[in-house]
Design a protein around this nucleic acid. Structure first.
Lengths: 357, 357
DNA sequence: TCATCATAAGAAACCGGTTTCAAATGTATA
DNA sequence: TATACATTTGAAACCGGTTTCTTATGATGA
């Protein structure tokens, strides 16, 4: 019943347009890409037909001919994590602004997926690859992995959020040292001296750096490093935060503040504290990293480190394109974190005397 | 220093392999696609070269030649929402199992983005498009939108999670009626009779159906419908849950249970209740939809409706491929919800007498 | 009016695969 | 050994664009 468009089944091509406009395909292409002048009357006729048929040039053919797809592949550890989701959306937005498209694949934390998906991105001839998390965030990466990345980099530039010694790939990183400095300054300023660290694995670069900075700042403030306040390596999830807080509370209760490795872990920490009848922030301050929407939803709302995803995404895309176009860029760019203070952190209520509960 | 692979700069092609193996490109293609028999010794030689160079056939060229890309485009409302993220990951997994790839675009809830991205998917010659949320979930869709979808459907099948009257597109939907039935049965069984509804917009099909079922079940249980217990149209976010609960509590406090439209809204509801000193579940039961990770993190943990994302994703992909391959399939498939009971819902402690706080 | 030069547009090659068609090779049968 | 038939294989066309090269057209100046 609907008025049938003439693109019955098969999609229409540049040749169809050319025929109807009585010009050669080359001319249609020139109008499409605006790569050369075309006599106004022909241009108009062609543009009218493009509009009439809602013609969309085949991106596959375009990519084949161009050897440039204007597509950037993004490999994320897990898009269900709001941290990566936010960063991905930021990349998507930034890419759009400069006429690029991003395609996303999830590695789900498995190295074999990572390798397989890198291969898929190569097949698809993306112009660059951005790695969000994954193996490239490790403190030291395996020789095999480095070799794989190096082979890919012989044809496609790779940008990571960590670092990859032994490769020439570019990196955009958050200044983890600075982020720990912000939290520690905040807590020390509130009078806290026994500060616990919950969640994370120190074989991840960003976590390692935080740990280092934590120790450094203790020393600078004449506070003895206390290994019992640092939870052993764990994960970055709710369960880890909950379990590690429980375990620590079973051994001691003299800390007055907790730094959780991210919002997920912080939620677990808060649940544990809650179940122990420990009030936040009166009895214990809780702060975290990432400032996802969970920071706002927590009760009380969480003091957290914000990364400015918009800027982060823009820098990732920007760097990728700079490398694609062969413009030289510094191999490492930093994103500056900021602290967002909310109600989960408050003045230390404990004297030098001891615990309050 | 690394031993240089011979794919200096340019990626190697089927022709390079053919030349070195002293066969024609056709033969290499046959080995690649396993589409015809090839003499074992040649096959072996070719396979050795493919491995040696880690050769990856150009997906663009493949797609051009095949007019089949084995790619399904997914248009999600917002991947930062764990609901869509989980569903997307489920699709990704299901697609992988059947040799397909999915590509994701975010509409961020804007119709103009949706239209633009649909166009991009057409350009990329995806074999099918899956819409997660967006305009296709509306109770009634605009004529222009229907026309756009119809035009796309003349070349690419579209599968939606809502419904689209006036198009022939397939749908995979959650049985919203059933999901409300499960929650109501649960609450009624616990003795609740004044049950509030928070969050959501009734111009969204799934929300409308829940509302209808809510009214129906009240009637079946001889409970008078009370408009004051149903919050006006709002959003699906934390802020809406918080605000609407606050507003309702300002007017009345006689309800004993709240059904939130999703976990985000439920978190807002819980915050509001918390600030009013209303205990969960002793004073008020709270239940919700989606069963995302927030259900587990809430304090107390949330009773929520689980959708089995794995199954949902599989059905979406399955339907898409069935349509691509021209196998007839029922136009509508359902996903059955289940209730996960946790600590946020408990027996109604209020007699017919009145409120408890 | 004719030579000169800039501009516009078409023909054809190319990107890297797949597939059809026909030819070549090999095997089985008479 | 000749014939028929099944396997393998290569040549060439094709998918739908872009781009180089060449030619045709139009404008400018002498």
């Amino acid at each position: 019943m609907l008025p049938q468009k003439s693109n019955e089944g098969k999609a229409i091509t540049i040749y169809d347009i050319a025929k109807e406009a009585e010009v050669s395909p080359s001319t249609v292409s020139r109008v499409l890409t605006n790569s050369a002048r075309v006599r106004p009357e022909k241009r108009q006729k062609i543009e009218a037909l493009i509009a009439k048929y809602n013609f969309k040039p085949n991106a596959l053919a375009k990519g084949l001919a161009d050897t440039r797809t204007r597509t950037i592949g993004v490999l994320a550890a897990d898009i269900r994590n709001p941290y990566y989701a936010s960063l991905f959306v930021a990349c998507e937005q930034a890419a759009k602004e400069v006429g690029y498209t991003v395609v996303l694949y999830n590695t789900l934390g498995k190295t074999e997926n990572e390798v397989e998906l890198l291969g898929k991105l190569q097949e698809q001839k993306v112009d660059a690859i951005i790695q969000l998390g994954g193996r490239a965030d490790d403190l030291v990466s395996s020789a095999e992995y480095v070799e794989i990345i190096n082979e890919i980099m012989s044809s496609i530039p790779v940008v990571v959020t960590g670092k990859l010694d032994g490769t020439r790939c570019h990196a955009v990183r958050i200044d983890s040292m600075k982020s720990m400095e912000l939290l520690m300054e905040h807590l020390l300023g509130l009078g806290h001296r026994r500060i616990a660290l919950i969640g994370g694995r120190r074989n991840v670069l960003a976590t390692f750096e935080k740990y280092q900075k934590y120790k450094l700042m203790l020393k600078e403030n004449m506070i003895a490093y206390d290994d019992g306040l640092v939870a052993p390596d764990g994960g970055y999830d709710f369960e880890t935060g909950y379990r590690q807080m429980n375990e620590m509370l079973a051994k001691r209760t003299d800390m007055t503040a907790v730094i959780a490795i991210n919002d997920f872990a912080a939620m677990g920490v808060m649940k544990s504290l809650n179940e122990h009848g420990i009030r936040i922030p009166e009895d214990m301050s809780v702060v975290s990293y990432d400032n996802t929407y969970m920071s706002e939803m927590a009760m009380p709302r969480l003091t957290s480190i914000d990364y400015n995803f918009g800027e982060y995404g823009r820098k990732l895309i920007d760097t990728s394109i700079a490398v694609i176009e062969g413009r030289k860029k510094d191999n490492l760019r930093m994103v500056m974190p900021a602290i967002v203070v909310r109600e989960s952190s408050g003045p230390c209520r404990v004297g030098a005397l001891g615990k309050s509960f």
